[in-house]
Amino acid sequence: MSNIKVENLCCTYGIKTPFERHAVSDVSFEINKGDFVGLIGHTGSGKSTLVQMLNGLIKPTSGKVYIDGIDIWEKPKEIRKFRFKVGLVFQYPEYQLFEETVYKDIAFGPSNMGLSEEEIKERVLRAAKFVGLDYKLLNKSPFDLSGGEKRRAAIAGVIAMDPDVLILDEPTAGLDPVGRNVLLSQISQYQKAKNNTIILVSHSMEDVARVTKKVMVMNKGKLAMFGDTKSVFSKSEELSSMGLRVPQITKVIKALRDKGVNLPDDILTVDRAVAEITELLKKEGKL
């Protein structure tokens, strides 16, 4: 059974005013358990609205959202249950920290679930470990942390709820390159360890190419493409017509291929490109 299933989802803002706008229109898709999906799209393409509908923060104007086969709006009173199942990390999540200590802040989600003290403690420590947060920081005030540490603490706050589905909206925005790489590999490792579903919303094609298996492309509120990461990034013309692009390295490889260099056409990461090129050079006896 699919983990997330969405049918004809629509969301319209400002109905019956001059500012009426279709943020998401007629979107349908299915995501299986354990999928690592990238969600890309131009600014204002409806990505944020879409992910907020998946955990019931925004009620769709029409259409249905099923989590594990259950329509989440069937009993509107129990919508909180699905917020624990589908964890959403907002953009710049460090601005939501509020508790006196990092520990208490990470514990906010689990304690809202009504868990026991021991269970909460175990979850907080596990979540901190997953995001690579030093245990020494747990007793500090979240406002004394550095930018990157704050980001980790905020992500840990959602991971501590142990959601079946984890949605991250631009988790690496504003981080330095090293911080970006570390955070991305931690998310990857987390996914491998838990085998749960992850949706990564990002503007960085490199990030998406590096970690995801599948990619969804949103354009003007509609789902424009949904498929394997490789097949989506092979359609560079279509992507650029939507204000998107393929990863830089894919472009470079394509230019090399156009010049007659014998390289495969599905290279999306720099690491893979290095490996392929060294192999090619070795084969031709130039290395």
């Binding site: 907020q52 955990n55 923060l57 909180r80 917020r83 624990f84 964890g87 959403l88 990390v89 907002f90 999540p93 601005y95 939501q96 906010f108 989600g109 809202n112 679930m113 706050g157 959602v158 709820m161």
Partner: peptide
Amino acid sequence: DKIMSAQKARGAD
């Protein structure tokens, strides 16, 4: 609005 959504996502009632 944003902060409320973020806290609701962490189960704030």
